[in-house]
Each structure stands twice: as structure tokens, then as C-alpha cells.
Amino acid sequence: MGFKLLSKLLVYLTASIMAIASPLAFSVDSSGEYPTVSEIPVGEVRLYQIADGVWSHIATQSFDGAVYPSNGLIVRDGDELLLIDTAWGAKNTAALLAEIEKQIGLPVTRAVSTHFHDDRVGGVDVLRAAGVATYASPSTRRLAEVEGNEIPTHSLEGLSSSGDAVRFGPVELFYPGAAHSTDNLIVYVPSASVLYGGCAIYELSRTSAGNVADADLAEWPTSIERIQQHYPEAQFVIPGHGLPGGLDLLKHTTNVVKAHTNRSVVE
């Protein structure tokens, strides 16, 4: 069995187990497998329904001669939608809004960016022009300005110390501490036991640490421990890039980060 097929099978099995364990909360999309990078042309966006009122959005972007996937989250909030992270750029984010209108038909009224990198804030200006209120932590807003990236308009308070959590509509926002970046936030959907790890969490097929220019490698494993301790009931975990899975993604990420750190020390 090929690795790609095995990865998709694991996603399907995880979703099936969740649907059985929580039949009222989960209505997993039966329309197909989780979209992969090879299936999404740059400039297009796919939506994948995880649970009743919960979707991931998947886009792709060219970077350094390669094409990478990027995940975000959409959560229903009454007759409105909360968006977590842009679709990595203005063109993708405009396509995301169009796809949401086509498939869901509810307005996106608020959006949260989970850290300051372009795959999370690139497209904020498109959201703002569409009347979406954009939010991020003060740290993310400051770092985005320093980096020359787009800056969300509103500040999220109460997320300055490791372990801080605040309720934001249908989700809980959690600051686990520094990891992929010093400002990275985690998003949890309690009604569906869905954990969105953003770039602080890796997919299972990833074996290298990737972009760690703004990471705190020493603190990252401790931050992941905080996530595990705060959300032990999480059933569906979405990484910032690639295929979702279960809580095993947290341990896998820790292993990859520690291996990278150990290699760096040896070198």
C-alpha cells in the first residue's frame, strides 16, 4: 500500500471513529477524501466538511520552486461564519470567499490569524475590503508590521502568557507558548472536538522541520505538551499544512522538532 493511500485511509478511519463516538456532533463529509496538494491548482481553494458547521479550507501556493498546501478553518456561528487564517495570499483568499459563498452561503463576518507569517495573514486586506472584521493577538499584529505583512485590524486580548485561553464565538483560542513562531495560536472547536494546530503542528508525513527561522526550538516541545494537557479530548487535529489526523500529530511534531534540534547540535 502506497504512503499517500495509507495517509488518506488514516484520515478516513479517524473521521469514521469520530462519527461513531459522537453521532450528534459529527456529520463528516462523505463526498470524498481530504484534498491534497496535487489536486488543488494554485489560485483555487477546496472546502472539506469535518463536522456539522465545521470545515477546513485548503489552498496551495508556490514557494521556492515548489507547491505547498495550506489549511485553515471555518466555523459556523449562528447565521454567520468565523474564518481562521487566510488562504495564503490575496488571490487565494478572494477564491476562498467565493467558494464559501458557493458552498455554504453564509457571510464571513470575523477572521482570526493564528500567527504573523504570510500563509496566515496574506489576504487580510481582501477580507477587510469584503467587510470582514480581522483579528490577531497584539504580538501577531506587531510582528506582521515588522515583517511588512498585512496586519489584522483588531487585537485579541488575554493571550499574552503561555497557557492563556479565551473564548471567541464558537471557538476557544489558546496560546501554548512559542513553537513554530513566538505568537502562534491554537484554535479548538469544543462542539466538535476539532483542534486546529496551525503551523505549530505537523502532518504525519512530514519528517523535516522546514521553516524554523522564527521558531523557538527549545520551547516548542513544552508548548505541545500544554496543548495535549489542555485538549486531551480532541479527536480531529488539523495541521497548518497537509493531512489531518488525531492527537498523534502532536507527538510526531515533537519528535521531528527534537530530531532537528539534535542534528543542529551535532553539526
Rank of each mutant, 00 (worst) to 15 (best):
D29R: 10
A19Y: 15
W88C: 13
A130R: 13
G105I: 02
R206M: 04
G240E: 01
K251G: 09
R167A: 04
L106I: 05
A111C: 09
R167H: 04
K4I: 15
V37N: 03
L217M: 06
V212F: 09
D77M: 03
V121Y: 05
A87P: 04
G72C: 02
P190W: 03
L217H: 02
S208C: 02
I201K: 01
V187M: 01
K258W: 14
D248Q: 13
T140P: 00
L97V: 02
A234W: 02
N211M: 12
S223K: 01
E225R: 11
S223C: 12
S70G: 10
D29G: 06
I20G: 08
V75T: 12
I40K: 10
V187N: 01
L243D: 13
E80C: 12
I50V: 08
S30W: 10
A192G: 08
Y68A: 09
F26S: 08
S208Y: 09
G169R: 08
A129E: 10
I224G: 09
L159H: 09
H117R: 00
Y135Q: 02
S181G: 03
A200K: 00
D119F: 00
E157G: 12
T222D: 10
H117T: 00
F168P: 00
L13D: 14
V166R: 04
D77G: 05
S139K: 11
L243G: 10
P221M: 07
L249H: 07
V146Y: 14
G169A: 12
L73K: 00
I40E: 08
L73N: 01
D125Y: 07
L83T: 07
A218V: 05
T60Q: 15
N184E: 01
G65A: 10
I227Y: 01
Q61S: 11
E33M: 12
V75H: 04
M1K: 14
L97E: 05
E233G: 09
L127S: 01
R110I: 02
F3I: 15
D183R: 00
S113K: 01
I238Y: 03
G43F: 15
S31H: 04
A136G: 09
Y188Q: 09
T254K: 05
A19Q: 12
T36H: 06
N262C: 07
V266N: 02
V265A: 06
T222Q: 13
D248F: 14
Q229K: 15
L159A: 05
N211Q: 04
A215I: 14
R110Q: 11
N92T: 15
N92V: 10
G89P: 02
P239W: 01
I227S: 04
I17G: 04
A94G: 09
G72E: 00
S30Y: 14
G246Y: 08
G197Y: 00
D164H: 13
Y48G: 06
I151A: 06
D214G: 07
D214N: 14
S38Y: 15
G2L: 13
G169S: 03
E145I: 08
A94F: 10
G240P: 02
V171F: 04
Q228I: 02
